[in-house]
Design a protein around this nucleic acid. Structure first.
Lengths: 238, 238
DNA sequence: ACCACGCAACTTGGCAACAAGATAAGCTTG
DNA sequence: CAAGCTTATCTTGTTGCCAAGTTGCGTGGT
């Protein structure tokens, strides 16, 4: 599909949307109107519009039409900041709720076990929390910790809200998190359900270790998944 | 489209692809095979596969089948680094070529003019360069400078390879770039052609000012657009 | 005059039938 | 026997038709 047949219409509509030519919940031109205007079969127009819907820009109602989805207001997030996500959101005056999604024992996985610097005979627990900012699910924190470092994790797992607080509770007071690797991915259907987002909304994934300062021991490995369309990320010192 | 009919198949295939169950250029199951397996009409399977194609994971050949697209090897890029993109790539031992895509005078735009701190009567020039790393277009640098700060820009515009070098050439030796705002977007058809990428490959956009240290004057405003699937971004000190 | 019903003209949603390209097996012909 | 053509059967690509939901207008009865 080198020369795509629906790229022109996507370009045009996207530009109109980004320029703000449509207001929230405005009706877009119908499939037939666009088909006539661009002189192409309706199915191509339709595919273009479905793509825009999957990207999260518009929604559709059978029998009525297609409409501009209200734009979520953007949160500002400092990727280089030393503040945790929780602190940063609260500091910016947002209403924050954290849902603990429970924990599971993960089967042996080379990448995760080596990140935690534990042997294959150790047990690794995965703890997931969903952060809801101003009633909007925005970030999913997935942390991996080993049972050897946190023996009581299976008792505490369901109640943890912030990993950093838990580390401190367990006696690890001096630790640092090296914000590490950033990548972009698309949501799985589970993530899509949690974030209440469309299928093609890109996610920004930040992976980082948390290292205890004194003994240089790895406390945990955390993957933070952000809905990329809700944030403007900032790279700068605090 | 709350309950999507093609999400299961996308989930499954994406997991198989990411886990590496298919080798490069391996043939995936045909539309009919998947339709029978998932017990859904072929068109739904087809739409799912087209989505994967647009995401850049697979390619198709009429009459033959669908195949796993070879994965580009990932470049490492330090977002917080003080090195310029050019320096960073060369330093990592990559073959780098920069194509100057020419310059144009831009019509008045509030955001750009205010970023450059120039009046509406000033002229602003947009200079675009495409960076090709190991024969692969990877990043697009778009810089805006004003004619009042760089009077000779229209003579030099076509030959600039690196903005930083040009700033230095023009006598501005002490300047700093605050890597600022990061966001994710999708390519326009022009960008898609330049990057030789699929329609739904997310782009990572980094916007930054360059400020002259002595007089605190804004030299230029630069937007760097990266193909997000070619990089693993790193956030850390050099 | 006014209300109710129905029909017509729109909207998006879904799908089946057909077209076109590729490949391999089998038949025909020299 | 071998070369070349045909055909059957795979693959993906395209198109057109009909279903379903919504709205509004017009008509007919009260």
């Amino acid at each position: 599909m080198l020369a795509q047949n629906d790229s022109k219409i996507i370009d045009d509509l996207l530009q109109l949307i980004i320029e703000g030519k449509y207001k929230e919940n405005d009706r877009l031109p119908s499939e037939n109107e666009l088909a006539i205007y661009y002189n192409m079969p309706r199915i191509n127009v339709r595919n273009a519009l479905l793509k825009l819907e999957d990207m999260g820009y518009i929604y559709s109602k059978q029998g009525k039409g297609r409409f501009l989805k209200p734009k979520k207001h953007q949160l500002e997030l400092n990727l280089t900041g030393s503040k945790s996500f929780t602190e940063a959101m609260k500091h910016a005056g947002h209403d924050l709720e954290t849902q603990n999604l429970g924990y599971v024992k993960v089967p042996y996985d080379e990448k995760i076990y080596s990140k935690l610097q534990v042997g294959q005979d150790d047990e690794v627990i995965k703890i997931s929390r969903l952060h809801i900012v101003d009633s909007q699910p925005t970030a999913l924190h997935i942390s991996y910790v080993s049972k050897s470092v946190f023996p009581r994790i299976e008792r505490d797992g369901d109640n943890i809200q912030s990993m950093f607080s838990y580390y401190a509770d367990q006696g690890y007071t001096d630790f640092s998190s090296n914000k590490g690797c950033v990548s972009i991915s698309f949501p799985t259907s589970v993530e899509r359900a949690l974030f209440e987002c469309a299928a093609l909304v890109p996610l920004l994934v930040v992976e980082s270790d948390c290292i205890e300062a004194n003994q240089n021991r790895v406390l945990g490995y955390t993957k933070i998944i952000y809905r990329s369309d809700l944030f403007t990320y900032v790279i700068a010192e605090d």
